[in-house]
């Protein structure tokens, strides 16, 4: 059973994980200095769909995000992208192995 499906729901209530607001427009990826297309929108889909293994497989991508907020600057939905990335890091450290 998916463990991640419980974790983000819990996060939504407790820590403000707000992937639901993302409309998958791609503005964030266009301004990301790392130019990684998966960050953050596809990643957030994985989380919403409870795809633990897909999230685990992106450990390197998740930990290489610069938290620079360039993406947030251009996000029309006001998604707290960097905070979501930090929360995913915490999840990977606790339960992600």
């Amino acid at each position: 059973m998916s463990t991640l499906i419980a974790a983000p729901l819990d996060m939504t209530v407790r820590d403000g994980f707000d992937a639901e607001a993302c409309m998958n427009c791609g503005f964030c990826s266009a301004t990301c200095p790392l130019g990684v297309p998966i960050l953050p929108r596809r990643l957030f889909r994985y989380v919403l769909f409870g795809m633990d293994d897909a999230v685990r497989a992106e450990t390197e991508t998740i930990f290489s995000c610069l938290l620079c907020r360039s993406c947030e600057q251009s996000c029309p939905a006001g998604v707290h992208i960097t905070e979501n990335v930090r929360l995913l890091r915490g999840w990977l450290l606790r339960e992600g192995r």
Partner: peptide, 8 residues
């Protein structure tokens, strides 16, 4: 650094 890495 610990905060950025999610070690809350």
């Amino acid at each position: 650094l610990a905060y950025d890495l999610g070690a809350d």
